[in-house]
Computed example of a mutant assay.
Amino acid sequence: MADHLGATVRELAGPPNLALLYPKALLTAFGRRGEGLPTTQYLRRPVTVDPGHLARYAEVCGFTAGDELPLTYPHVLAFPMAMRLMTDGDFPFPLPGLVHVGNRITRRRPLRAGEPLELRVWVENLRPHEKGRQLDVVSTASVAGEEVWTDVSTYLRRGGGSSAAGSGERAEPPAPTAVWRVTDDIGRRYAAVSGDRNPIHLHPLTARLFGFPRAIAHGMWTKARCLAELAGRLPDACTVDVRFRAPVLLPATVHFASWAEPDGWGFAVHDAATGRPHLEGTAGHALSD
Rank of each mutant, 00 (worst) to 15 (best):
D271I: 01
A231Q: 14
D241A: 13
V179I: 14
A165H: 14
T177S: 14
P262K: 02
L205M: 12
A175I: 11
G187N: 09
C238K: 14
R170Q: 15
R189Y: 05
T150K: 15
G166Y: 01
H218R: 11
R158M: 11
L205C: 08
G219E: 01
F212T: 06
A141E: 08
I216S: 07
T274V: 05
D185H: 08
A260T: 14
A175Q: 14
P173Q: 10
H203Y: 12
G275L: 01
P176V: 02
P174L: 07
R188G: 06
F210R: 04
S258D: 15
V240N: 03
F267P: 03
A272M: 00
A237Y: 09
F244G: 03
V240T: 11
H218Y: 08
A178Q: 09
T206K: 04
A246P: 04
A260S: 15
V269N: 06
T140S: 11
E229F: 05
W180F: 05
R188P: 08
S153H: 09
G166P: 08
T222F: 02
H278M: 00
K223H: 03
V240Q: 09
P251K: 04
A272N: 00
E172Y: 12
V254L: 10
D236V: 08
L250Y: 02
G145D: 10
R189F: 12
D185K: 05
L156P: 02
V248G: 00
E169I: 14
D263G: 12
G211N: 02
S163N: 14
S153P: 07
G161I: 04
D196A: 07
E147C: 15
R181M: 05
N198S: 08
D263A: 14
S142T: 07
H278W: 01
L234R: 08
A260W: 10
R188H: 09
A252W: 01
G145V: 13
D184T: 07
F267Q: 02
T282K: 05
W265Q: 14
D185C: 11
I186A: 03
L249T: 09
P173H: 07
D185F: 04
A224E: 10
E229R: 11
S194L: 00
T177M: 11
P199F: 06
G159Q: 00
R170A: 14
A283V: 04
L156M: 06
G160D: 02
S194M: 01
W149K: 09
P204D: 08
P262H: 05
A207D: 06
R214F: 08
T140G: 11
A252Y: 00
F244Y: 12
Y155K: 05
D241L: 04
G211V: 08
R225I: 00
P251N: 11
P251T: 12
P277F: 00
P199L: 03
H278T: 00
R197M: 15
V148S: 10
R225F: 00
W180D: 00
T177G: 09
R208F: 01
F256D: 02
G219F: 02
L250M: 01
T282P: 08
G159S: 07
C238L: 13
H255W: 02
A272K: 01
G166D: 02
D263F: 11
Y190T: 03
W265I: 12
D236Y: 03
A268I: 13
A231M: 03
F267M: 01
